[in-house]
Structure formats: C-alpha cells, structure tokens
C-alpha cells in the first residue's frame, strides 16, 4: 500500500504566510501583538500536521470507509491536542497582558532591567557596581528596577496603577 505523500501546495503556501506573519508580529513590543504572532505561528505549525497526514481521505472509522481510502487519524489526534494546549497558553498570555495593562496602563514587553542598567553605565563609562569599601553610593538591581521607567510611559502616568490598592 503506497500513499500519495505529495504535499498540498495550498496548505504549504498558507503555512508559509501564517508563519511569516507570526514571526513578524512576535518581533513587536506589544504583548498583544506577540500573542497574535504566537497564535498565527501555532496555527501554521498545526497545518503542517495536515500535510504530514498525506492526502485527505474518508473518516477513519472501520466499517465506514475502506481501509485504503481512510485519512490518517494520528496526526489529527495530535493536532487536536496541540490546538487545546495552544488555547490554554493563549488564555494565560491574555491574562498576563491584562495584568500588565492593570499595572502599567500598557502591555509593552519591557527591557531587561540589567540591559538597561549596563547601557546606562557604559554610557558614563562607570564601574559595573560601586564598591562598598571605597564609596558610599550604592546602586543595586532592586533600586534600579524600582526606578527604571519605560520609554513607553509618559510623564503624566504617575497615577496609581489600577490593580494596586
């Protein structure tokens, strides 16, 4: 029994478009766009399972379809699992984006605190951290994190975050 394994061109093109658009969106700053990017890429990858299952056939139920004309059920089972998992993760990321909006009034993915700190220190050509023995000024990550502000935050944004009480 040989199965026609020539990939369906439409599927391949759709996968290419979905993944390309998804990767582009993932490179954005806003978590909502990253999320849409992940959904697009995820769906693109799910479609590869349809390609993997070969040419479409009848319902894979013994007694209903002739064995030779059945479509392969295993990739469908796998893709269902993958869809459910993606759904759960999407819900979690949405909640996270909402929480970020509660706290900061935006859902931009912020810079690594340390990246920011190193860039600033490098600009002044200072030592990476002040030595307690020789100097009084102390800079540490907690304080920098507290002081670090996003460039996306405007100056009139000093109002209490919605979630804080």
């Amino acid at each position: 029994m040989t199965v026609d394994m020539t990939p369906n061109l439409t599927l391949v093109v759709v996968i290419g478009v979905l993944v390309a658009a998804g990767v582009y969106l993932m490179l954005e700053r806003s978590l909502s766009r990253v999320l849409i990017g992940i959904i697009l890429v995820g769906n693109g990858i799910n479609l590869t399972f349809l390609v993997a299952s070969g040419a479409a056939g009848g319902a894979p139920i013994v007694g209903m379809t002739d064995t030779d004309e059945m479509s392969d059920p295993l990739p469908q089972a796998m893709v269902l699992t993958a869809i459910v998992i993606t759904l759960g993760m999407t819900a979690f990321l949405l909640a996270l984006a909402y929480r970020s909006w509660q706290l900061h009034r935006h859902d931009e993915v912020q810079d690594d605190v340390e990246d920011r700190r190193i860039a600033r220190i490098a600009a002044y050509d200072q030592a990476i951290y002040a030595d307690m023995d020789t100097e009084d000024t102390v800079s540490d990550l907690d304080r920098d994190a507290a002081e670090a502000r996003d460039e996306t935050q405007s100056s009139d944004d000093d109002a209490e975050p919605v979630g804080a009480r």
Binding site: M89, F92, L96, S100, Q110, V113, A145
Partner: peptide, 11 residues
C-alpha cells in the same frame, strides 16, 4: 517585576 520577567519567560 514578576509580570515583566514572566512575560519574557513565557514567550
């Protein structure tokens, strides 16, 4: 702070 670092971890 956890939302910030968690976002990167999850993505």
């Amino acid at each position: 702070e956890r939302v910030r670092s968690g976002t990167i971890y999850i993505v």
